[in-house]
Simulated scan of single mutants.
Amino acid sequence: MRDLPAGVDETALRRGLRAWGVAAVRLDYAPLGFGDYHWRVTDTGGRHWFLTVSDLSRKPHCGDGPRAAYEGLRGALDTAGALRAAGLDFVVAPLPGRDGSTVQRMDGRYGLSLQPWVDGSAGEFGQRLGAAERARVMRTLAALHRAVAPATARTPAPGLPSRSGWESVPPGTDSHPEVGPRTAAARALLRRHGTALRRRLAEFDRLVGEVSARADAPVVTHGEPHPGNLLWGPDGEVRLIDWDTCGRSFPERDLWHVAAREEGGFDDEALSVWAVESGRTPDPSALELYRLRWDLDDVSAFWELFRAPHEHCADTEAAWEGLTGTVARLVNGPG
């Protein structure tokens, strides 16, 4: 996120870091990604750490409401820690605090997590990977998908985590007052394309039924291995960061992020690398399901933001660009 979280200051962060026994001498805000808030921490010994603040009121994929989201987030990060402990060195996992928890509560809204600083070249969301990079990621995902699932691993359903938000998407948007600078524009956009969006939602429901009938055993998935969650080392090795979405699911939940083509369809060469390494064959319907799920979930999340009180800032403008681009993709197709 580009803007700082409301009600969070350095005093609160320094106090929260005590849960890991870290005494900070410097906190540098890192405006990365969209959703969580990040700082680079320097402690009294000169060591560097990566601190994340999660808004538990805006993590429907972890749970409905702050309390459930805390439990879901902790389960996901505990799973990442267990995978790392099992020898998967490409897993950049948060550390448990002195009480054993990977997530520390900070008032009723936020959760803190901490991991060692890892040097490398971070990717960016939307970045296009080369063929060699895609193959490297696919081999890494195959290793993850072969791993034994830790007991803490959740099993997220293939349905939309924000499905309840679609109850307010057109035609039911007219009743929402203008509570921010983008409310009216977002409402008009969704009303204008409401019929097409409902068709895509019906398509999604059909795919959920088709894929859910599969007898394949689920695997451990990262959930969002897009380029923004990849960290490249100088030796060409890749590490996976940001594990709040991990859980047991169909492998296509991960694969589409790497294999999707901007013009539509999927990269068969990249998928074949995973197939050889994993011994399984990707399901085209499941790839389409998770690609569509991503966009539908984004529309719901962006509308939830704009129908709630909000201000004009860098993050809301990024959300507006995300909403308009995602709606265009859903209505007109990739490309």
Rank of each mutant, 00 (worst) to 15 (best):
F34E: 13
E124C: 05
A132Q: 10
G33D: 06
G126K: 01
G35K: 03
A131F: 14
L73W: 11
P96K: 05
P116S: 05
P60G: 00
A131I: 12
L95G: 01
G46N: 10
G33R: 01
G45N: 03
A135N: 04
G126V: 01
S54Y: 06
A131E: 15
P60H: 02
T52A: 13
E71T: 11
T44F: 12
G72I: 10
L95K: 05
A142R: 07
L83T: 03
L114Q: 10
H61S: 02
L114E: 06
L95S: 05
T140N: 11
G100D: 14
V53H: 09
S101R: 14
R40Q: 13
V137L: 15
A80K: 15
T79S: 05
T44D: 15
A82M: 00
G120T: 11
D36K: 03
G108A: 04
R139V: 01
P66Q: 07
A80V: 01
G97K: 02
R128I: 05
L73P: 07
D119I: 00
F90N: 04
R84L: 10
M138C: 08
G130Y: 10
G108V: 05
A68C: 04
D36F: 07
H48D: 12
L51S: 08
F125K: 05
E124I: 01
Q127W: 15
L51M: 09
T44L: 15
R128N: 14
L32M: 15
G81L: 11
M138S: 07
R136D: 09
H38Y: 08
V103A: 13
R58Y: 14
R109D: 10
G75R: 15
W49C: 06
V118D: 01
G65F: 06
R67T: 14
G33A: 04
D55T: 02
E133C: 06
M138A: 14
A68H: 04
Q104S: 08
A135T: 04
A68M: 04
A131T: 15
L83M: 11
M106Q: 11
L77K: 00
G111Q: 06
F34I: 06
S101T: 03
G75W: 03
